[in-house]
Simulated scan of single mutants.
Amino acid sequence: MIEAWAVRIPKRQGEERRRELIQDGVIAGHLRPEADGDDLLIPVTESPPGTERALFREMQTAPPLPRHEQVGGIAIIQENDPRGAERILAARPSTHTVLHAEGAVEGEFRTKTFSVLAGIPTTRTTYPEYGHRFTIDLSSAYFSSRLATERQRIRSMMNDGEAVCDMFCGVGPFPIILADRAGWILACDKNPGAIHLLIENLTRNRTRNVLPMLGDAARLGDIFGERFDRVLMNLPLIAHQFLQTATVLTRPGGTIHLYALQEREGEYRDLIQSIIPESTINERFLRSYSAGKWHAVYDIRKKKD
């Protein structure tokens, strides 16, 4: 117990008077108000007229939760911390599983290896975003919830009826979010697990104008040519290697969105200008990725004929 100054008031006035003390900036927020018969003793930091000394218990504050990314009912932490995982599970009733990411994205299909630290042993969950619901399996296909705002930005830029190509669609967050503005969308990925989940998500969200395609994005230009008003390149580590294909796919006056991890501002600007001359380029910072590296997007408008 801690001795401190107190304001004594009738219990029936307790909440109103407590708010006044908070507004005045004199309430001792680290101490818990105490009942004394029909009165309430509220701890304060000053000793105005009418105060008295009283004993109070300290407020118990929970320790901060380990840093984690929330994807639907799954929390992903970078440290192998079983106790921290249990605290996340206890603090978040909607969380059913806590995973530890054992390494970075790797392999041809951009997946991670996870171990289950707490909860249900699964890597599968449902993720809600702006009125849509996505089935995610983190062991089968890469997914990050951190581009939800970016997907809305792209949607706001679109004209109704656009033809869109997502060269690296994953489980379908961009195509499904953009579908109500598009005429049609080609959604391509070379990962069979991603395409299976994409088809499931198209059905779940009743999306009928997206064409799923299992294939190598590098071959898309040979198949489709200049057909799309907008091309998405969300493969930040190597998307720039596919710029030549992207420009073949994009109509004159169309837009390419190149997502990249970079260490300096404008890192890919010269490359873009060399492949897509006379284009208009707008570079945007999205989020920090690691020390000295951040996630950026280049909005590239091709010159009209």
Results as ranks from 00 to 15, higher is better:
residue 211 L to R: 15
residue 212 P to I: 12
residue 213 M to D: 05
residue 214 L to C: 11
residue 214 L to N: 09
residue 214 L to E: 12
residue 215 G to V: 10
residue 215 G to S: 08
residue 218 A to W: 10
residue 219 R to W: 15
residue 219 R to H: 14
residue 220 L to F: 09
residue 220 L to V: 07
residue 221 G to N: 11
residue 221 G to F: 08
residue 222 D to I: 14
residue 223 I to R: 14
residue 224 F to L: 10
residue 225 G to T: 15
residue 226 E to H: 14
residue 226 E to N: 13
residue 227 R to F: 07
residue 228 F to H: 03
residue 229 D to P: 06
residue 229 D to L: 04
residue 231 V to T: 04
residue 231 V to L: 05
residue 233 M to A: 05
residue 234 N to C: 01
residue 234 N to M: 03
residue 235 L to G: 01
residue 235 L to V: 00
residue 236 P to D: 00
residue 237 L to W: 11
residue 237 L to T: 10
residue 238 I to T: 11
residue 238 I to N: 13
residue 239 A to M: 04
residue 239 A to K: 03
residue 239 A to L: 05
residue 239 A to Q: 03
residue 240 H to F: 14
residue 240 H to A: 14
residue 241 Q to S: 11
residue 241 Q to I: 07
residue 241 Q to W: 12
residue 241 Q to K: 12
residue 241 Q to T: 08
residue 242 F to K: 01
residue 242 F to E: 01
residue 246 A to G: 07
residue 247 T to I: 06
residue 247 T to A: 12
residue 247 T to S: 07
residue 247 T to Y: 03
residue 249 L to M: 09
residue 250 T to E: 06
residue 250 T to H: 02
residue 251 R to V: 13
residue 251 R to C: 13
residue 252 P to N: 12
residue 252 P to G: 14
residue 253 G to H: 11
residue 253 G to N: 13
residue 253 G to C: 12
residue 253 G to Y: 09
residue 255 T to F: 05
residue 255 T to M: 08
residue 255 T to Y: 03
residue 255 T to S: 12
residue 256 I to L: 08
residue 257 H to S: 05
residue 258 L to C: 07
residue 260 A to Y: 02
